[in-house]
């Protein structure tokens, strides 16, 4: 440690693993860290990995761009609990003094990030949608929506280190892994007894498999304009034909027509599909912040002034109950013979 140059700016990413599965947001963050590194002279991209018997996950971090993985492998870290994780990561931060530290804004990441920032006494910007290096002074410019998405604020942490930020899954693009990339694993010792952990997990009541709309390539989303829960069967039919999933806007979830796990937007999920079909969604800013990263947006609404049309690749003013059945026929026809009918 002392032999190393203390001036190397380290850009850290927390690799979130549970049950030996790495959350993909970790790789999205490594992609962002690589881009930041290009603008921060002399910097290195490194990953932090915690758990029990998880050393075999380190090579994946190298493939996504880390040159080094700090690994704390300990039985008290078997399942995520706030205290031992926060203590272990804070210990790493204190020892290696990273310049920037990125964590996924997942349930786990949000629980952890605030605790680490408080322990080490630094600034933390939650739910960033854009990260860059301020060219003038080489600090992190972390931009996030606030006031329900009505305002964007760029947050700076000038004097405290690390500069911490969380980013929601799918806000950033997934980088391509480099299959033969390698790096260094730094095994960091950790000393904690199970008796000293104040919280025990008694059991986990597994939910039925939640629809994971965040990673769907095609989303057919319905809003208030769908008119009622029955209408979602039609959207499901189109989604099935396209190999996609059904999602919803907040009013639909609030009305109980769809489950909250399918909600897109500020208080729901952020999605980044190749194709987003918005049916009967007016497109309030709170909804748009969750889906404006889609490659292609097709919007159908009876109201020609619906804000969704401002961002749609193609906007259709019309009745979704007329347009969607026609689309379903067309898509199914195409899928059967594999030929474009255009």
């Amino acid at each position: 440690m002392n032999a190393e140059q203390p001036t190397i700016p380290r850009i850290w990413v927390f690799v979130e693993q549970q049950e030996h599965q790495v959350h993909p947001v970790s790789w999205e963050l490594l992609g962002a860290a690589k881009r930041l590194s290009a603008d921060l002279p002399g910097s290195v991209v490194e990953a932090v990995l915690l758990g029990h018997q998880v050393a075999d996950l380190a090579p994946q971090a190298f493939q996504y761009g880390a040159s080094r993985v700090y690994l704390i492998d300990h039985p008290v870290l078997e399942i995520y609990r706030n205290m031992p994780y926060a203590v272990a990561v804070s210990q790493l931060v204190t020892e290696y003094r990273p310049e920037i530290f990125l964590i996924g804004a997942t349930t786990l990441g949000r629980d952890l990030a605030g605790s680490i920032a408080t322990r080490v006494g630094t600034g933390l910007t939650a739910d960033c949608t854009e990260l860059s290096i301020d060219p003038a002074n080489h600090i992190l410019a972390a931009t996030r929506p606030t006031f329900g998405g009505n305002l964007m604020a760029t947050i700076l942490c000038r004097r405290h280190r690390p500069q911490m930020a969380t980013v929601r899954p799918r806000v950033l693009p997934m980088p391509e892994p480099v299959p033969d990339a390698t790096g260094e694993v730094v095994h960091v010792p950790f000393d904690m007894r199970e008796e000293d952990v104040p919280v025990k997990r008694l059991r986990l009541i597994r939910a039925e498999e939640q629809p994971n709309i965040e990673y769907a390539d095609v989303i057919v989303a319905g809003g208030r304009g769908v008119g009622g829960p029955e209408g979602f069967a039609l959207l499901q039919e189109l989604a099935d034909a396209l190999g996609g999933m059904v999602a919803a806007s907040r009013p639909v979830v609030d009305a109980g027509w769809m489950d909250a796990s399918r909600q897109v937007g500020q208080t729901g999920k952020t999605v980044r599909p190749k194709l987003y079909i918005a049916a009967g969604i007016s497109g309030a800013v709170q909804h748009r912040v969750g889906m404006s990263g889609a490659d292609v947006i097709l919007a159908i609404n009876t109201d020609p002034n619906a804000p969704i049309f401002q961002i749609a690749t193609l906007g259709i003013v019309g009745d979704l109950y007329e347009v969607i059945p026609a689309l379903i026929r067309e898509v199914k026809g195409q899928s059967y013979d594999g030929q474009a009918h255009l």
């Binding site: 600034g123 964007m152 760029t154 700076l156 942490c157 259709i316 003013v317 009745d319």
Partner: peptide, 28 residues
């Protein structure tokens, strides 16, 4: 407070494309 707001601005929407209508062009 270690963090400060560098700047605040209203989000610039991604630019949209064309808006067409069933009434004007027909369903097909």
């Amino acid at each position: 407070s270690p963090t400060v707001v560098g700047k605040a601005y209203t989000p610039s929407p991604r630019s949209g494309g064309e808006v067409i209508s069933v009434a004007a062009l027909g369903l097909d």
